[in-house]
Nucleic acid binder design. Structure first.
Lengths: 142, 142
DNA sequence: GTGATTACCGCATCTTTATGCAAATAACCA
DNA sequence: TGGTTATTTGCATAAAGATGCGGTAATCAC
């Protein structure tokens, strides 16, 4: 049976795109994508993929967890200016957040510099910058 | 009715002391302290107190959440040396973590200085330092 | 092919947490 | 004080998630 991997890819997509709060959400989301399975299967998939549930109640991919926490905890604002994104952080945290962003390796980013409470992120063009901005904002739950 | 507040104080203690994973854990812990109540009551207490459940599966007080996340995500090691505690963090994060520690206002800390990836914490004496060390380590789940 | 082994999954059920409802208790007030 | 109102709680049950068991499909050795 090969469907398992394909289904788990679909789960990855759903978790990244939307805010999935329950396993039922996933069953329904998968249904719309043409996959049919039960909550029991989802439970096993979640365990196998190492999905975590945040205190805020949404599922998140394990590889996104660290960045999410740092962004949610330390980023104060995100502003767009042409192909630049200016990220304000808690005092003294810009270096740390910038390192995590770097490590996450968002493809649309050319590079960044960080001061004490500000990160300047340079994207190739306005659209790439905008994409990056919304990617960050998606991590800032609550 | 005064028992509610007293019970919630006991819950606070338990959550800080041990790693509480289920509401049943709390019912049992409270039982040993002489409080008798049901899981339904605990559920309401947890909601009212704003307790959160970490992805690692343990409950945490809302006021401890930010520090916990930063410590868990960014602290690499904690070493004790007489009345000093040397905290190693991810590169560029020492400032941020030190600020959060500062904000948490652990009473046993006299002060601290932070470089790029190291925080030096000064306590009044060896015992205070040791207490602080274990307080930090308690936040470093998994 | 046949048989054995393995991976996968649904069903049923268990565990954990949330909640509607009514009873009990506390707080208030005339 | 007696009556009224607001809180707090337990019980029963719903909702969300985990898991034992057995069945089916895919794989492999022969």
């Amino acid at each position: 049976m090969k469907k398992r991997n394909v289904r788990q890819d679909a789960i990855r997509q759903l978790v990244r795109q939307r805010h999935i709060r329950t396993q039922r959400d996933l069953v329904e989301g998968l249904e719309k994508k043409g996959y049919s399975c039960t909550q029991a299967t989802i439970s096993r998939d979640i365990n196998e993929m190492g999905l975590k549930k945040l205190p805020e109640g949404v599922y998140i991919l394990p590889e996104d967890l660290l960045l999410q926490r740092l962004v949610a905890d330390l980023v104060i604002s995100v502003e767009l200016a042409n192909n630049l994104v200016v990220v304000k952080t808690a005092a003294g945290s810009a270096q740390g957040v910038a390192a995590a962003l770097e490590a996450a390796g968002e493809p649309q980013v050319l590079g960044s510099v960080a001061g004490d409470d500000t990160i300047l992120v340079v994207a190739a063009d306005n659209e790439q910058a905008s994409e990056f901005e919304s990617a960050i904002n998606k991590l800032r739950l609550r």
